[in-house]
């Protein structure tokens, strides 16, 4: 049964959490609150995603700082019983176990009686397309099938906090879609589903809220819209294909703080000290120039560029 949410809806709170392994700082001063919904945890390999997930699962105690769940509850609180589910990183599973035996065993350890554990394990494995492989040894399954077994044990019971470390690895597009559906269903049922990935695009399409990690630091956090605004602010250049690029360039020069301008045949590339002003001025400039714009794109407004920009700041 799900523990009721606290008044502020906070499922997980990290306050100035630092995790060190000897001299290596895996996570530094992480502070954030997570509420129900699908949260994308993004960062390149070694950014501290797995460490953060293990801390959020209560499997580690932070070197410094405080992790609390469901409105200030700490590990050992009876109200946290069964409220956390986890899919750890890595693609191996005990080779001699079968999908059914492993999921059943996990559910038994989570307090289900034998019959309920077996029924529930069969149901979730069927949902994840593993019904023909119930009794096959896990060592003989494909990576994608093993990943679905790991996901099955995490989604088998409702939980308030579902932590998924690189959950879409090795899944084909059909199962990615199904797993994304499961994540959204869990979120609709009041869970905070944290999805870590180093593949930015796949998380962008699933998560409503993003947490960006780089070198152990939370470098950005917010809704997709907030992160988009951040990207927008950092856009490096606007590239346009227009019927009259010179006229359009003149109009933009008079309306926005343009710092660099380049015309190459039909293509116009513009940079401004305040990109937001440049974008705001664009529609009027197009109308005033009478140019016909076939194509417009910005450089540097994707998450990869954002990571590069943030990396420079962190250095």
């Amino acid at each position: 049964m799900l523990t009721p949410l606290p008044p502020d809806n906070t499922v997980l709170r990290m306050q100035r959490v630092t995790q060190q392994y000897g001299a290596n700082v895996a996570l530094l001063d992480a502070t954030f609150d997570l509420q129900p919904g699908v949260v994308g945890l993004l960062g390149p390999n070694g950014a501290g995603k797995s460490t953060l997930i293990h801390l959020a699962a209560g499997l580690k105690t932070p070197t410094r700082g405080k992790v609390t769940w469901l409105g200030g509850k700490t590990l050992g609180d009876a109200a946290l019983e069964g409220q956390i589910a986890l899919v750890p990183d890595g693609d191996s599973l005990p080779k001699l176990d079968t999908p059914l035996s492993l999921v059943t065993m996990v559910l038994r350890c989570h307090g289900l009686v034998a019959h309920d554990a077996d029924t529930r394990a069969r149901a979730i494995l069927t949902r994840l397309g593993m019904e023909a492989k119930w009794h096959d040894a896990l060592g003989g399954l494909s990576r994608g099938q093993r990943q679905r077994v790991k996901l099955a044990q995490a989604f088998a019971l409702p939980a308030r906090l579902v932590l998924l470390d690189e959950p879409l690895n090795a899944l084909d597009p059909m199962w990615r879609l199904e797993v994304a559906t499961l994540m959204h269903e869990a979120a609709q049922n009041g869970a905070c589903v944290v999805v870590s990935s180093h593949i930015l695009e796949e998380v962008q399409s699933i998560a409503g809220w993003l947490l960006l990690l780089f070198r152990g630091r939370v470098v950005a956090a917010g809704s997709q819209a907030e992160i988009r605004a951040l990207l927008h602010k950092r856009a490096q250049a606007l590239r346009l294909k227009a019927s009259n690029p010179r006229a359009l360039a003149r109009e933009l020069l008079s309306r926005a703080p343009v710092t660099e301008l380049k015309i190459d045949a039909e293509y116009l590339t513009v940079q401004a000290s305040e990109p937001a002003e440049l974008f705001a001025a664009l529609p009027q400039a197009v109308l005033a120039s009478g140019a016909h714009v076939d194509f417009a794109a910005t450089d540097g407004d994707d998450l990869i560029s954002l990571f590069h920009a943030l990396a420079k700041e962190v250095k």
Partner: peptide, 14 residues
């Protein structure tokens, strides 16, 4: 379980 990364499945209960 440790080598397979599956120990965590069994440790989530206090």
């Amino acid at each position: 379980d440790t080598e397979a990364g599956a120990l965590a499945f069994f440790l989530l209960r206090p």
